[in-house]
Design a protein around this nucleic acid. Structure first.
Lengths: 342, 342
DNA sequence: ACTTTTATTGCAATCGTTTGCGTTGACGAT
DNA sequence: ATCGTCAACGCAAACGATTGCAATAAAAGT
C-alpha cells in the first residue's frame, strides 16, 4: 500500500462535508442530493480514490478472499483446477490466495493458520499425501467454517467434496484393455493414503472380476511418488524379475505411465503390441508422444469451477452445507489412443 | 472469517486488564511483568486466539501480501515460476494472491485495480500478449509502488525486471542446429508484441549471420498462439507450399515444436534425419516424446525466486530500486536430445 | 403562526490491533 | 516530609470505511 493514497476523509475535507456523506454518495445511497453525489464522484475521480478493501474487510468481517491449499502448482491437473477456481472467484468478485504444501503436512497446517489469520472467507483444499489425520479440518468444520475439498477428499463428517469418479475411470480403463484382448493387466497404484488411489484400484479390480479375469496380486504394485522415474524403475523390475509377465499396464497417473512406456522401450518391448498402456489424468503430452497415450481425462477446470461455486454459495448463505450429504462426483472420459490399441 | 473468533479484547476482559497490555504481553514487550505475560499467553491459548491480520494491515498500512499477475496458470513455465514465488514469499511471511489474465488486457487492468484496493504491498507481473500500452504500470512506478516484472518485461523507465537470456538461448539453439549440419533453418516466431519473441528471433538471425549462413525470410514464420495445433498447421503449410524447403525448425516454444514434429511425421518426413527440430522452454514432455525434443531450458523456479526476493527487498526498503538500472538476466541451458542430432 | 413532514447531512461507534504518552503506586534517597 | 525513579499498566487515538441514530433546516400542511 502506498502512503498518500486518497481516502474518504480526503474527499470529505476537500468538500467540507462529513465522511459519512462521502461514503453514502459514492454508493448512491438515497437521501443524498444529486448535487453532492456529483461533486463527490468528481473529487473522487480527481484524487484517484480507491476504496480500501482492508478497512472494509475489518468492518464487515468479510475479506472477499478465498484460500486455496494445493499440493503442488506445477502439475497439469492442479494447475487446471486453479484456473477454474480463479475464473469463478474473480467473476464473483473474490480474490484467490494460494498456498502449495509440497505434500508436507506441517506446511499444510501452517498455511491454514496464516490464512485464518488473514480472515479468508473459506477454503478450497486438496490435502497433502502426508496428511492422514484431519483434526485441523474437523475443528474448522465444527465451527461451520466453509470448506470445500476437491480431488483428494477426507472421510470426515460434514465435509463437502467435489471429486472425480475415479472408480468409474479406472473401471473403464481396465475394461478397455480387456476388450483389446489384454489379460495380464498390471496396475501401478498411487499412494495408499489417498482415497483416489484406493478408488482407482477398486475400479481396476472390479473390472477384472466382472470380466472373469484372474487377478494377479504380484501385478499390483505401489508407485507412490507418481514420477516418470519411479514408473520406469518399477516397470523395469516387474518385467525383469516379476513372477508374472504382464501384457498391459494401467498406471494410476500419466507420469508413471510414461515411465512404464520408456522402460518397455528400453527393453525392446513393443507398445501396444507386446504391452498395452493406459494412464490417468490426460496430461497435455498424452497426444504428443509416440505412441500416443490412452488416458482417463479428469475435468480439472470443471472441478475448480464447481468447487468454487459451492464454496461461494456457502459463504453467501445461498447453500446450506447440511443439504449436501454426498460428494459431488464428476464423470471422467476415457480417451483411447495408440498405446492400448492392438 | 468466523464470528466468535477470540480477540485481544476477550483476553483482556477475561483477565481484567487492558487490551494494550494484552497486545504487549503477547509480543513480549519489556515493561510487562512476567506474571502477566504468562497469564495472557495462557488465556490466549485457551481461547484459541489468532491475531487478526486484517486489523494489523489496516493499522500498519501493510498487508504482507503480494499480487501476482500472470497470463495463464496452466503452463509449465509459468506454473514453475509461481512455485518459486510461493516458496520465497511464504518463507518470508508473505501471502501470494494470484490472478490470471488469460492474455486479456482488460482483465489485466481490472486485476491490478482490485489488488490495489486490497492494499497489496507489491506486484509481480508478466503482462498479457494484448498489452501494448503500459500507462497502468507507469503510473504505479511513478508513485514508487514496488513492481518487479518477469519474463515478459516492458520497456518503460524505472521498471525492474527479471528475465531469461532469450537471445543467448536462441543463439545457442540455432548454432547447435548449424553445428549438426543443418543450413536451411526455419524459425517459428512468437507474438511480436513480446520482447522475448523479438529477442529469440534476433538470437536466431545473429547466429545464422555469424556462421555465414544465408537467411531465408520466407522461413521465418509467425506462430503467435504457440499451440501445438498452430505449429502443426504452419509447418504443414511451409512444407507443402513453401518456396524454400527447410532442413531444420527452431520453434520459439515447445508446443509449436511438437506441432511441427507431428506435421513432419504426418507427411512422412523423418526427424531428425530429414528435419531437425529444437524447441524452447523445456516442458516436461520434451524427454518423454519420441524422438525426444531438444529444447532451451529456462530457469522458471529461479526466476520466481529472484523476482520475489527483489520485490520483498524493495518492499522492506532493503533494496533501492534506483540502484537497479539493468534487467536481471538469467542464463538458459540448451538440452540436446534426439530431435536435432543427426 | 403553529406543527408536521421531508430532504439532507453529521455524529459517533464499530471492526481488531498498535503505540505514544500519561497514570499509579511503591520504593529509596535526601 | 519531599522528591525522583522505576516498574507496570491503562487511555485514547489511529488506520479507513460503514451505519444507526440524531440533528438541522426548509418546505408543507393546518
Amino acid at each position: 500500500m502506498k502512503i498518500g493514497q486518497a481516502t474518504i476523509k480526503d474527499i470529505a475535507r476537500e468538500l467540507n462535508i462529513s465522511s459519512s456523506t462521502v461514503s453514502r454518495a459514492l454508493k448512491d445511497y438515497p437521501g443524498i442530493s444529486d448535487e453532492t453525489k456529483r461533486k463527490v464522484k468528481e473529487v473522487a475521480e480527481k484524487l484517484n480514490y480507491r476504496p480500501n478493501a482492508i478497512a472494509l474487510s475489518l468492518r464487515k468481517s468479510r475479506s472477499f478472499t478465498i484460500g486455496v491449499i494445493i499440493p503442488e502448482v506445477v502439475h497439469f491437473f492442479f494447475s487446471t483446477v486453479i484456473s477454474g477456481i480463479e475464473e469463478v472467484a474473480s467473476s464473483r468478485g473474490y480474490n484467490v490466495i494460494l498456498s502449495q504444501t509440497n505434500e508436507s503436512f506441517a506446511r499444510e497446517k501452517s498455511s491454514i493458520d496464516t490464512m485464518l489469520s488473514n480472515q479468508i472467507d473459506g477454503f478450497l483444499v486438496s490435502f497433502s499425501k502426508e496428511t492422514t489425520e484431519f483434526d485441523h479440518f474437523s475443528k474448522l468444520l465444527d465451527q461451520s467454517y466453509p470448506i470445500v475439498f476437491f480431488d483428494r477428499v477426507p472421510n470426515i463428517p460434514n465435509a463437502i467434496s467435489v471429486m472425480v469418479d475415479d472408480y468409474q475411470g479406472a473401471y473403464k480403463a481396465t475394461s478397455h484393455l480387456i476388450s483389446q484382448g489384454y489379460t495380464k493387466i498390471s496396475h501401478l497404484v498411487g499412494p495408499p493414503t489417498l482415497a483416489i488411489s484406493r478408488e482407482r484400484e477398486r475400479g481396476y479390480r472390479d473390472s477384472l472380476a466382472n470380466h472373469g479375469i484372474q487377478i494377479y496380486p504380484e501385478l499390483i504394485i505401489e508407485c507412490a511418488y507418481g514420477t516418470s522415474d519411479e514408473g520406469f524403475k518399477v516397470t523395469e523390475a516387474l518385467l525383469k524379475n516379476g513372477k508374472t509377465f504382464p501384457d498391459a499396464i494401467f498406471a494410476n497417473n500419466d507420469m508413471a505411465a510414461v515411465g512404464a512406456m520408456l522402460a518397455c522401450r528400453s527393453m525392446g518391448i513393443k507398445v501396444p503390441d507386446d504391452i498395452g498402456i493406459v494412464g490417468f489424468s490426460n496430461w497435455q503430452f498424452c497426444s504428443m508422444i509416440e505412441p500416443s497415450l490412452t488416458s482417463v481425462s479428469q475435468p480439472g477446470f470443471k472441478i475448480g469451477e464447481t468447487a468454487t461455486q459451492m464454496l461461494l454459495d456457502m459463504i453467501e448463505k445461498k447453500l446450506d452445507p447440511d443439504s449436501i450429504t454426498a460428494p459431488i462426483v464428476l464423470e471422467t472420459e476415457l480417451l483411447v489412443r495408440k498405446s492400448s490399441v492392438k
